[in-house]
Design a protein around this nucleic acid. Structure first.
Length: 522
RNA sequence: GUGGGCGUAGCUCAGUCGGUAGAGCAUCGGAUUGUGGAUCCGAGGGUCGUGGGUUCAAAUCCCAUCGCCCACCCCA
């Protein structure tokens, strides 16, 4: 229903309306409650970071970084942008005598202005910018020296140079809407010197993330995650197991009982590269039996071939070498201990040797939770160990493990499982009639709300017929009816809407009366 | 970026061979001026996604375009 002139939410983002928003609150509250019992505290992170934080953490050649991030330059230099566009436009036609002069003039102004802004601190003083400016200076000199004898191709090639260089200049810092939060947590851990805190640092977060992807079921451009991280000096598998235990306790409280837990180990910097090469070699041998996507992955990321869903590739994939058999001694012990720790906690899990992670920072323990009813995105939650990430971002050597749960998908799974019901609760509807009753209605509503009841008070005078009709449709448990009679006697007529039973209660005793019957409210 | 499906009332959807735009639910009002749910009566609500073409006549046929959904890639 895209009608001209009507606004609608942009592609891939959406409104979460009542009553569904109540389910969201329930889920998020469950997370807070459970995480708190495991000693986790909330960290509230910015929604955007310097682009490099994500490039460094996730890896430059991951899909997320290379094509799915919302990235922009943060600056306030419209005049320079306009100048740049002018330079580019003039450079396009620089071969003619007239435009040559215009290009020189614009480029000259651009260079002066740019230097000025850098001096003022309005533009970043970076090495690439310095190089670009020097190059433009040379180009300027070239154009000033152009004569009739200068070959046309040379002029055009230089003009092309100018366009490319001028467009490469960074006016501001590159920032990115966060596509995930682990990188931000690591950044914050370093920035605030959290390695000096006693014990492991246990943090959780929740909120929106952003990826510029084609939307589909359970996948949005603004999506939500609930996540938790443990950072510290220890990589004891007990931590990994406890994180998984906590995650499952949270899912229990949320009501997601139909789910599967998969675990795997993907090795470390020592043994994983060796395995990847082994796998690549094996895949090369059977290349012609694979689909086009998998063939491409042999070069780009052999581990992802294991993820293939193509039915015809499955038998072949089953014959491939498994990382569990090629882990180094330390990783083997770590993985074995993890499984022991899970058993110790009575956690039912499945090993999935094909479970690999897409992001560069993962190592050793990886895990995933799946649930039915999510379309082709059956993963609700993924996580793993990322020792070394903090160091990669310039911090001290630090171990880390955590998970991120797709809230949109958890909500979807709960709804599919019939556990998405979230009725708005309305305890009392105050129906009043007559000018004298309104002040009493205001008073009663305020008193009841003060006592913790959810109360609806109409502000237009309505016949009781209409008032009670509304009370019914709003799902109120009780109606308090106030008219001239009640005002005269300082009593309230209290009607239980479920069975139409009603009685008169003194105004002063109303709260006590409703409290006594609060079990009926539930 | 690639492929498929779908756009008619707030929602779910009919709409025949091209011939005045429909139903159910929802909303509002009335039957019922101190009492809700049921029933009955009534009302409002539409640029048939948008633009163009064919035609005496287009929701319907043709072209283009936009939007949404699902799937692939990839991922939570």
């Amino acid at each position: 229903m895209a009608q001209q002139g009507k606004f609608q939410a942009i592609k891939g983002v959406r409104d979460i309306l009542p009553p569904e928003s109540a389910l969201w609150n329930r889920v998020e509250q469950a997370a807070r409650d459970v995480f708190a019992t495991y000693g986790f505290a909330e960290i509230r992170l910015p929604a955007f970071e310097a682009t490099q934080v994500f490039e460094r953490s996730l890896g430059l050649n991951t899909d997320v970084v290379s094509k799915e991030m919302y990235t922009f330059e943060d600056h306030d230099l419209q005049f320079l942008e306009w100048l740049r566009a002018e330079v580019v436009a003039r450079a396009r036609t620089a071969a003619s005598e007239k435009d040559k002069g215009a290009l020189i003039a614009r480029l000259n102004t651009f260079l002066i202005q740019t230097r000025e802004q850098i001096k003022n601190g309005m533009m970043p003083q970076t090495a690439p910018n310095a190089i670009a400016l020097t190059r433009l200076e040379c180009d300027l000199n070239f154009f000033a020296a152009v004569s009739d004898r200068t070959p046309r191709e040379e002029i055009e090639s230089m003009a092309q140079n100018v366009r490319d260089t001028v467009e490469d200049i960074q006016f501001g810092v590159s920032v990115t809407l966060r596509p995930e939060a682990t990188a931000s947590v690591a950044r914050a851990y370093i920035e605030h010197g959290m390695h000096t805190l006693p014990g492991d640092v246990k943090l959780y977060y929740m909120g929106p993330m952003f990826r510029r992807e084609r939307p589909q079921k359970g996948r949005y451009r603004q999506f939500y995650q609930i996540g938790a991280e443990v950072l510290g000096q220890s990589d004891n598998p007990g931590i990994d197991a406890e994180v998984i235990e906590m995650l499952l306790a949270f899912l229990d409280l949320s009501g997601l009982t139909e789910r599967k837990v998969y675990v795997n180990s993907i090795g470390c910097r020592e043994c994983r590269p060796k395995y990847v090469e082994l796998l690549r070699g094996e895949l090369q041998k059977v290349k012609d039996q694979l689909g086009a996507d998998s063939q491409r992955r042999i070069d780009t990321n052999p581990l992802r071939v294991l993820d293939s869903k193509l039915p015809e590739e499955q038998p072949l994939i089953e014959t491939l070498p498994r990382i569990a058999e090629h882990l180094c001694e330390d990783c083997r012990k770590h993985y074995a201990a993890l499984k022991e720790q899970l058993k110790l906690r009575g956690i039912v899990y499945e090993e999935n040797w094909r479970l690999v992670r897409g992001l560069d920072y993962y190592m050793r323990t990886t895990f995933e939770i799946t649930a039915p009813g999510l379309g082709s995105q059956n993963a609700v939650c993924g996580g793993g160990r990322y020792d070394g990430l903090v160091e990669l971002l310039g911090g001290p050597p630090t171990k880390g493990i955590g998970f991120a749960l797709g809230t949109d998908r958890l909500i979807l799974a709960l709804q599919e499982a019939g556990k998405g019901e979230a009725k708005p609760q309305l305890d009392v509807y105050v129906a009043w009639l007559g000018a004298a009753a309104y002040p009493m209605a205001v008073r009663v509503a305020r008193t009841l709300r003060g006592a913790g009841f959810a109360v609806e008070l109409p502000h237009e005078e309505m016949k009781f017929k209409k008032s009670l009709g509304l009370a019914d449709r709003l799902g109120a448990r009780y109606a308090v009816i106030l008219g001239d009679d009640e005002v005269a006697a300082s009593t309230c007529t209290v009607k239980r809407l479920a069975d139409a039973h009603q009685e008169k209660i003194a105004e002063a005793a109303l709260v006590e009366h409703l409290r006594r019957h609060s079990s009926e409210l539930l």
